[in-house]
Amino acid sequence: MPQPMPAPDVLDREFLEIRAKLLEVAASFDRIDRGEGSVEGDPRMALYREALETLLSDQPNRAEQIQQIFSRQYEESWRTKFGV
């Protein structure tokens, strides 16, 4: 299996990039707050919140977990339902 870079090297290389991405997210939330009206009941905001909680966890597969949060559920019985 291909070896990833050592963790300290990844952090050195990506520190500023990650910092910039966090700032973009923070600024986007600030922009939503400054805008007229409310999005409090919008289900997409709940998805963001769930994704951010996943980000703060120590699970090894955060990217996959966040993909799942933004995904429609799969139902095994779909073929029966569709009749195909």
Partner: peptide, 9 residues
Amino acid sequence: EDKFQGTRM
């Protein structure tokens, strides 16, 4: 959002 469900199908 359709990717996971569609891929499994």
